[in-house]
Write a protein that binds this DNA or RNA. Structure first.
Lengths: 190, 190
DNA sequence: CACGCATCTTGGACGCCGTCTAATATTCGA
DNA sequence: TCGAATATTAGACGGCGTCCAAGATGCGTG
């Protein structure tokens, strides 16, 4: 790793750390990008060099995390049924969010603007997942593959919605597992 | 209906009509809220009195439409399985979008900012749908109800994603039907 | 009709976001 | 060691979304 690359990663982390600290103290909307930049000892322009928006600093993943999940995807055996791969990938991805998700959730609860934001932890992950699914199922029924991928994401979204304020992160994970199973088994009769 | 209420509806429609026309001519980002307001003969402040954001003017539904789908939801028989109700509601809702969805899609295709926006046609609809589902399944397994609702939305999202640029609206509707059926039947093995 | 009241509209100002450019600083490769 | 590639920065800009106080418009009552 270059000195340049090391510095980049360091700057990225400094900005995000400063931003999350300030957001946690004062709330998302009461902190301006200028204040974040100042706290991280960079200029406002540099902030936007690393993050596309103020919301992105809450949702973007550490650049090194990306390599992790990409490796995880590629490690799935090629002959595994797509849905089994998807559930395994989704569970593993979410387990790794144990430390960041509660904070992100607290911020969302306090700030409507952030909650409304379409952005999500999934943004980058979903993009990579889509690529993986597409190469994994090349030549087969494309829409069904797309559908299964979206179903896996919906399972996560539903478990997240059902996550009560006072519950620990584990409760979310257990619900995610249950949602994935339910979806795989077909719609229940209610 | 009051004169006041009639004027309100009229203003809402004038603003939206002007906005969509301008967006279609010049693209979403090249039209400012000021220009929309001017074209609709209202002030900039009035625009924000009717629409919460520039994106909202693309995605919000006509106030009268809302009564339609609410009536449709409440018309479902109480003893119908939830998933059957959801598929019927989702199909009927989407059929009514025949005229607006192609335009909205064209705008999205031309403007990345709009495409990225988390907003959706579903925004208001989903909120009402959620309320309907919650009262409809009161006392039963809440998470499963939530899950089914989200699955129906995912079916629509997937059909939308698979909608090729040159296809007519009907192709989207047919795919939506197929997605709903597939989800109801359980995940296929790929 | 006349009046006061509620609601809607409007201009103007404000803070902040996100983009851009041109100049400067830093690192890299040779 | 030096030129090329890349990162950082200040500053300016347009536009979005919010706010307020003043004026206009429709409403129910006497």
């Amino acid at each position: 790793m270059n000195l340049r690359e090391r510095k980049k990663l360091e700057a990225w982390r400094a900005i995000r750390a400063a931003a999350l600290r300030l957001f946690d103290e004062r709330g998302f909307e009461s902190v301006s990008v200028e204040q974040i930049a100042a706290a991280a000892n960079v200029s406002r322009a540099t902030f936007f060099n690393y993050f596309a928006s103020k919301e992105a600093v809450v949702f973007d993943q550490d650049p090194q995390e990306r390599e992790n999940w990409q490796a995880m995807m590629n490690a799935r055996p090629a002959d595994e049924p797509l849905w089994d791969s998807l559930t395994a990938i989704m569970m593993a991805f979410n387990e790794r969010l144990a430390d960041r998700m509660p904070l992100q959730r607290r911020l969302k609860a306090r700030s409507p603007a952030l909650a409304q934001s379409t952005q999500d932890f999934g943004e980058q992950f979903s993009s990579d997942l889509r690529d993986w699914v597409m190469t994994r199922t090349r030549g087969q029924d494309e829409m069904t593959a797309l559908l299964q991928m979206n179903l896996a994401r919906t399972a996560a979204a539903t478990a997240y919605q059902a996550w009560q304020a006072d519950e620990p992160f584990d409760a979310y994970l257990r619900r995610l597992q249950r949602c994935l199973q339910q979806v795989g088994a077909g719609v229940a009769t209610i």
